[in-house]
Design a protein around this nucleic acid. Structure first.
Length: 979
RNA sequence: GCGGGGGUUGCCGAGCCAGGUCAAAGGCGGCAGACUCAAGAUCUGCUCCCGUAGGGGUUCGCCGGUUCAAAUCCGGCCCCCCGCACCA
């Protein structure tokens, strides 16, 4: 075997192969690049597989967590390629929005923390100087993502197709998409209340705080504004405007709260004079027409007066409260002490404090007369829930922090379980959650109420300004609520392969839930202007729904075959929708008809997309619109086939951060853990569908795992060849089972299960083979080759290097994935090893319990009659109750001789056989020649236990059995005697 | 609130949908041993409790139920996490 001679110099003791992983990675990445392995071209003779990962936004340097999903995509792509598919795996980036703009601003401003962050990541000074320009930011990071991340990780992506969303050609594609959406009646203009920065325009509020500095968890809340008529000596008839989240509680109003320390503002709103806080006026200016400030009015002045409450049309007293905050709602509050704990406590405090009443000149007897009005019945509660909860919790002061909790409890109970009572006029008997909307509507109709939006907490824009909610009248929306679109999308989603299955189940409700979406922004953003309304820029989610299709075009543009200006609607209509005539399109675009036909055939060949893989953040944002836009625009045959959602890598406290590890630049991580170590880590550490906590030690373990395998491969290659061995058939059998199991896992994208077989189970099988004395080099080599091939999608550098070392020509990445040989499956061989394993476990157990240091171990194989009964039990198990009789009729001779022992044993073993699962029956239903098996394993066991092993048949007349153990022997469980 | 996910033996994490060789894979950590001048790496064994014979006991968030049999199925409860929209 000459290949081993050629290897001999390698085993001279110069350390493990994988110690040189850095060189190995570089070597193979260059080879793959040189041989063009990444290139994907249409080939009508081959089946295709098209996969993408949701392209990342250009947000700066990425961390190791981001590589998790990208790695899954490459592993899947590599696997499919080795399975004979023509694989298209293109990559791109997303630059729409203001992330790059904000990035550039921070550089331009010379923000120290930002500069440090860039330097930490190894960004050279001359580059930093350029990054004050958003276009440079995009350009620079496109290169970083490709060169430092994806190529360094050994991805075989078709780099020629790279695109980014602000490329002029990509923008042409988006223009086409939006014209088609409009044609199909899915675009319209409407009113929208958007988070808005006075400097930067509309912005996004999200937990990742892309646009903002503070307030990522703020929610948009809708206040009902209640108007209380009040006659002022200076301004005449004005409305005190209170904001509430519970308009249905107006029936329980007893008084009105103002903060005596606040200067309120009188403002003209819609021809009326409103009294609200100064903060509220600012907010209203963004939501109402012609808001003008007329003057001021102090809270103190209002205290003690009366105003007329909406809906109930009663005059109620205005009382002082310090909890009416100027910046919440309108700064004015109506009081419903029956159902709002804070209102009740406000009253309670006043009732008790003569001091406060005197201070504000209020007649305390009047306050004392105010009683809460019961309005809502809640099962299990008395008529006045707010009073009740305060008493229960012992709340007595209006600055008790537990008031927040009390409020939550009462609101939750009241809103979801409560019923309006007889004090509520025509709403009596109505459920509270129903009444809320109707009461609000009625007051809006009558002009007693209005609506205002606010944020649940303070939000500060990246530019430093406070964020408000602004009314936008001519906002563009995509009509995702469209019934037909939704139905068709739901119908199609049923036929998609969506992972995990929980998400598959949830997809219909996500599609139902997905309402119309504001799809464009005003302001200075990167992105595609709305083609028919250019002041609007299409927002980041909406311009990234059909983009997998664009990778089929980008190749032509990138190579110069197609010019940007040739990408017109007629072109897209023809290649994607098959609309129009190729010659007409050729004439219009000036392109050769042949090129256009080529593109069209590419689309027909590659589309639809097989897998769109992305992080869990896409579940309710990107994936639904990805599906719906395809359904809305593309022909049915191009609708996507699959979605794969993965979870995150997080830091110990939540986010990846410097202090908790995982924040090192990706190139530094690959140096430390090796690329293959990292790839294996991502694939094996956990199910893709859970978050993983980054932990350096655990990542390192995967590098060590490769080193262990490295060692094992060395061991088996440097072993002396002893030719065929009785263990060969076992190894072949078990190995082919592994192949089958790995393929099954891979085909359902269960990378973890596959990696477990490949990197953990197979090495342990091989070790067992060696331990049991197997030394058939030819067999080991043939298995090693297949094993390396199985590793290739996960740890391609490691696998290629060994593949070459073992003397194979060609690239492993370009060869085929092993398939199992069913003929190699040998149940008997497997059963024998299970048997040996169990016998050894039993011996071990006895040694452990007794503490004997064994010199002699005697094994007794069951007598013939028991084997006969055992065999029959499994054979006849399916007969059910008849089995017993049937079996006994076959073993009558034994029974005559041995008496009751026979039926007793039959009934026991029959019960076992009948209860056994099919997969176990396969092994344990097999009757092996135990005597022979034990004899053949004698040397092995003697070595393992460092003792003499004797093997007898229990019914052997010359049996050595000083303690009468032999009679315990049963099939699959020989009796054991240790001394 | 609406929608979704989850609580497994020191830790991580399989198993649960298709109930039974499940005291529950695998890894990590720990302990013991081999190798070594030594350390690391590597390899072997042990790692819920009891047990001088392969056994027994108590476990899979809590309480109940179905079943010959429950980590797995059903009902109730407690706790944790995620999404909720101009955000790769």
């Amino acid at each position: 075997m000459c290949i081993f001679l050629s290897l001999s110099h390698y085993f001279g003791g110069d350390g493990l192969m994988y110690e040189n992983y850095r060189e190995i990675e570089k070597k193979w990445q260059e080879r793959w690049e040189k041989e063009g392995l990444y290139i994907a071209e249409r080939d009508d003779t081959k089946k295709k597989f098209f996969i993408i990962f949701a392209y990342p936004g250009i947000s700066g340097y990425l961390h190791v967590g981001h590589m998790r999903g990208y790695t899954y995509a490459d592993v899947i792509a590599r696997y499919k390629r080795m399975c004979g598919y023509n694989v298209l795996f293109p990559v791109g980036t997303h630059a729409t929005g203001n992330i790059a703009i904000n990035f550039a601003k921070r550089v331009a401003r010379g923000e120290q923390a930002w500069i440090d962050y860039l330097k930490d990541n190894g960004c050279p000074d001359e580059i930093i100087r350029k990054l004050g320009d958003p276009a440079e930011v995009v350009k620079f990071f496109n290169k970083v993502y490709i060169e430092d991340y994806w190529k360094k990780f050994g991805f075989l992506a078709d780099w020629r197709r790279f695109t980014t969303t602000i490329n002029p050609d990509y923008m042409k594609f988006i223009e086409w998409q939006f014209r088609r959406l409009k044609d199909r009646g899915l675009l319209y203009k409407g009113t929208y209340y958007a988070p808005f920065c006075p400097n930067c325009g509309p912005i996004a509020i999200d937990a990742s705080q892309t646009d903002i500095l503070k307030g990522g968890s703020a929610e948009k809340v809708e206040y009902t504004l209640l108007k209380f008529e009040y006659n002022d000596d200076e301004y005449g008839k004005v409305y005190l405007v209170a904001a509430t989240l519970r308009p249905e509680t107006v029936f329980g109003q007893t008084n009105f709260w103002v903060n005596p320390d606040v200067e309120y503002v009188v403002a003209e709103v819609g021809g009326e004079k409103w009294v609200v806080s100064a903060e509220a006026v600012e907010k209203l200016k963004y939501q109402k027409e012609n808001v003008k400030t007329l003057g001021k009015i102090s809270g103190k002045k209002l205290v003690g007066k009366y105003c007329r409450a909406p809906m109930i049309h009663r005059n109620i007293p205005i009382l002082p409260s310090r909890f009416a905050e100027a910046d919440v709602g309108t700064g004015l509050v109506t009081s419903v002490p029956s159902d709002a704990p804070i209102d009740w406590i406000g009253l309670y405090v006043l009732k008790k404090s003569r001091e406060i009443c005197e201070k504000y000149g209020i007649d305390q007897s009047l306050v004392e007369k105010i009683e809460p009005i019961p309005i809502i019945r809640i099962e299990g509660w008395g008529p006045l829930p707010a009073v009740e909860i305060c008493q229960k919790m012992g709340i007595e002061s209006d600055d008790d922090p537990r008031l927040e909790e009390a409020k939550k409890i009462v609101y939750k109970e009241g809103f979801h379980r409560g019923v309006m009572n007889e004090n509520c006029g025509k709403y009596a008997g109505m459920r509270v959650d129903e009444a809320k909307e109707i009461v609000k509507e009625e007051m809006l109709q009558s002009g007693e109420a209005d609506v205002m939006y606010d944020l649940s907490e303070e939000v500060i824009c990246r530019c430093g300004a406070r964020v408000f909610i602004k009314k936008v009248d001519d906002q563009w929306f995509i009509r995702y609520s469209d019934e037909e679109l939704t139905e068709r999308a739901k119908e199609h989603a049923k036929n998609m392969e969506i992972y995990p299955s929980e998400y598959y189940k949830n997809m219909p409700s996500v599609l139902d839930w997905f309402q119309d979406r504001a799809c464009a922004r005003l302001g200075d953003w990167l992105g595609t202007p709305m083609p028919f309304d250019k002041k609007w820029i299409i927002e980041p989610i909406s311009d990234s729904t059909l983009y997998p299709a664009y990778y089929l075009i980008s190749k032509y543009v990138n190579s110069g075959l197609i010019k940007v200006e040739q990408l017109c609607d007629d072109f897209f209509d023809y290649v994607f929708l098959g609309v129009g005539d190729v010659n007409d399109v050729a004439k219009i675009t000036g392109l050769d008809a042949e090129i256009i036909e080529n593109v069209r055939r590419d689309v027909e060949y590659w589309y639809p997309l097989d897998i769109n893989l992305g992080g869990k953040e896409h579940m309710t944002v990107h994936f639904p619109v990805f599906v719906m836009n395809h359904v809305a625009i593309m022909p049915e045959k191009y609708w996507p086939r699959g979605i794969f959602v993965h979870w995150y890598v997080v830091g110990k406290g939540g986010k990846i951060s410097k202090s908790k590890g995982g924040a090192q630049p990706i190139p530094r991580a690959t140096e430390k853990f090796s690329v293959d170590g990292l790839r294996l880590y991502y694939c094996h550490i956990a199910s893709p569908f859970v978050d993983v906590v980054w932990d350096d030690d655990r990542v390192m373990m995967y590098k060590q795992r490769l080193e262990k395998i490295d060692t094992l491969i060395h061991t088996l290659l440097s072993m002396e060849d002893e030719g065929k061995h009785r263990m060969d058939s076992w190894l072949l059998s078990i190995f082919n089972r592994r192949i089958a199991s790995v393929r099954k896992s891979m085909d359902s994208f269960d990378l973890r299960a596959a990696a477990n077989d490949i990197y953990f189970e197979i090495p342990s099988d091989i070790r067992w083979y060696i331990k049991r004395g197997g030394k058939n080099r030819e067999l080991l080599i043939s298995i090693l080759k297949k094993w390396l091939a199985m590793m290739c999608p996960f740890t391609p550098h490691f696998a290629e290097e060994w593949w070459e070392k073992v003397g194979n020509g060609g690239l492993l990445s370009a060869s085929s994935y092993p398939s199992e040989d069913e003929n190699a499956i040998n149940i008997e061989a497997e059963a024998e090893e299970v048997y040996i394993g169990r016998v050894m476990d039993d011996i071990q157990e006895i040694i452990k319990v007794t503490g004997i240091k064994p010199e002699k171990i005697v094994l007794y194989v069951a007598p013939t009659w028991k084997f006969e009964c055992y065999r029959l039990a499994f054979e006849k198990a399916a007969l059910g109750k008849k089995a017993m009789g049937e079996i006994m009729s076959h073993v009558r001779d034994f029974a005559k001789k041995l008496g009751k022992a026979v039926p007793n044993y039959v009934s026991k073993v029959l019960r076992d056989a009948q209860q056994m699962k099919d997969k176990d029956r396969e092994i344990f239903g097999t009757v092996i020649n135990e005597f022979e098996v034990l004899k053949s394993a004698r040397d092995f066991m003697q070595r393992e236990f460092n003792a003499t092993i004797l093997v007898y048949r229990a019914d052997d007349e010359n049996v050595y059995d000083p303690h009468g153990r032999a009679e315990k022997a049963e099939p699959w469980k020989p009796a054991i005697y240790v001394e």
